[in-house]
Design a protein around this nucleic acid. Structure first.
Length: 138
DNA sequence: GCCAACGTTGGC
DNA sequence: GCCAACGTTGGC
């Protein structure tokens, strides 16, 4: 089981939107090879932190992969593919970027070192630490 | 609103 | 295949 982190601007698609949807939603719009490749590696049932960029700058919950990679319906360009996500559970308490940046054991996170990658892997150790901070079971 | 960092595009 | 130009992301 691999762990991931996905980013979304809450203005465009927030975790609450994902929860309200209550069904799988295409994670479309990614136009970056590295991010796409991470989605290609995802398996159904794997979990991802849902991060709000720009506004909030915090992880607010967990989403689950609901469908394997498939063509992105928002483009005809066959290079761009995406998976579907469904909301898993919200954090009891959001974990802010600020908090992550000062945490001694989270310094190697891509979120800290490459703020622009919108789909990124998370190690098991990082996953556990952040779940604890967020008040949920890993 | 600014701007640095980064990734993609496209000419050569 | 290189690299300059350009566009976008996202923190501040």
């Amino acid at each position: 089981m691999a762990y991931w982190l996905i980013k979304s601007e809450p203005d465009v698609w927030s975790f609450q939107d994902q929860v309200d949807k209550g069904a799988p939603e295409e994670w479309h719009g990614v136009r970056n090879y590295a991010a796409r490749n991470h989605m290609r590696a995802m398996k159904v049932g794997e979990k991802a932190f849902f991060y709000h960029s720009n506004q909030g700058k915090e992880i607010v919950g967990i989403a689950k992969v609901a469908a394997l990679v498939h063509p992105d319906s928002t483009t005809d360009d066959p290079r761009w593919e995406c998976v579907d996500f469904i909301a898993d559970k919200p954090f009891k308490r959001p974990v802010t970027l600020e908090e992550i940046k000062v945490h001694p054991n989270l310094q190697d996170m891509i979120l800290v070192n490459n703020s622009r990658l919108s789909v990124q892997p998370v190690t098991e150790r990082e996953w556990k630490i952040i779940c604890e901070l967020g008040g949920v079971k890993p």
